[in-house]
Amino acid sequence: MTTKIVASPSKYIQGNEELAKVGNHTRDFGKLPFVIADDFVMSLTKDIIEKSYKDNGSNFVMEKFNGECSKVEINRLKEICRGKSCDIVVGIGGGKTLDTAKAIAHYLNLPVIIAPTIASTDAPCSALSVIYTEEGEFDEYLLLPKNPTMVLMDTKIIAAAPVRLLVAGMGDALATYFEARACKQSNAITMAGAHSTEASYALAELCYNTLMTDGLKAKLAAESKVSNLSLEKIIEANTYLSGIGFESGGLAGAHAIHNGFTVLEECHHLYHGEKVAFGTIAQLALENAPMEEIDEVIEFCIDVGLPITLEDMGIKEVKEDDIRKVAKASTAEGETIYNMPFPVTEDDVYAAILTADKIGRLYK
Score class of each variant (00 low, 15 high):
76 R>T: 03
123 A>C: 08
139 D>P: 00
225 K>D: 02
307 P>D: 07
291 M>T: 05
245 G>V: 04
141 Y>G: 04
74 I>T: 04
37 A>R: 05
139 D>S: 15
352 A>N: 03
143 L>T: 10
65 F>Q: 15
326 V>I: 00
223 E>H: 01
238 N>D: 13
63 E>C: 09
221 A>R: 11
154 D>H: 12
39 D>E: 14
220 L>E: 15
77 L>R: 04
121 T>L: 13
353 I>G: 10
183 C>G: 00
14 Q>G: 06
212 M>T: 04
235 I>W: 06
48 I>N: 03
273 G>V: 03
132 Y>L: 09
28 D>N: 12
84 K>E: 12
184 K>S: 13
22 V>G: 01
39 D>I: 11
322 D>M: 12
38 D>M: 01
143 L>Q: 10
187 N>P: 00
258 H>M: 11
81 C>D: 06
311 E>K: 15
112 V>P: 11
51 K>S: 14
190 T>P: 12
321 D>Y: 10
238 N>M: 02
31 K>G: 13
44 L>H: 07
7 A>Q: 14
72 V>A: 14
245 G>Q: 11
164 R>L: 04
254 A>L: 07
205 E>M: 09
342 F>I: 01
120 S>R: 09
320 E>G: 00
355 T>H: 06
311 E>Q: 13
156 K>E: 14
353 I>R: 08
74 I>D: 09
305 G>R: 02
283 Q>Y: 01
23 G>H: 07
180 A>N: 07
235 I>H: 08
360 G>N: 06
247 E>W: 06
301 C>P: 02
20 A>T: 09
305 G>W: 03
318 V>D: 04
244 I>M: 09
293 E>M: 13
13 I>E: 08
5 I>R: 11
213 T>Y: 07
